[in-house]
Amino acid sequence: MGLIDKLISTARRSSPWLLHFDCGSCNGCDIETLACLTPVYDVERFGVVNVGNPKHADILLVTGTVNLRNREVLAVLYEQMPEPKVVVAIGACGLSGGIFREAPNVVGGVDKVIPVDVYVPGCPARPEAIIDGVVLALEKFRGKALAVL
């Protein structure tokens, strides 16, 4: 491991970038996730930046149920993210399918498709809970980043 790799690893640990993907949620969790970025909650104070490109992202926030169509999109997004990476599943739907678990087009929770590190409950999850989840994910991310070193 060279000096540059160490430098990049340190920077990624202290300022992880986050990607949000709506898998099939009712928007409740999405607007709460967006609310986390706005002045009242402001996750950027933890060094977290919201990005739109999976190739730049370290943390993947997923809201909503997985269905037969978006499971491939979710898997591709996860594949595109560079290692180390952590996944946060948000809301009852993301955890297990929630109220929609018996609906015909629903596969179930996010962990049916990709490995999940942090589960944030709630219908919809509160911004405080989401921030808590992101902070927990940061700890996991630090562990994974140090393991690579």
Binding site: D22, G64, R69, A103, N105
Partner: peptide, 21 residues
């Protein structure tokens, strides 16, 4: 099709009061 859940079909297994939720 990325957000389709088919929740109208849930009316078959949830009664008319549960459908409010």
């Amino acid at each position: 099709g990325y957000v389709h859940r088919g929740l109208e079909k849930l009316a078959d297994i949830r009664d008319f009061r549960q459908m409010i939720q």
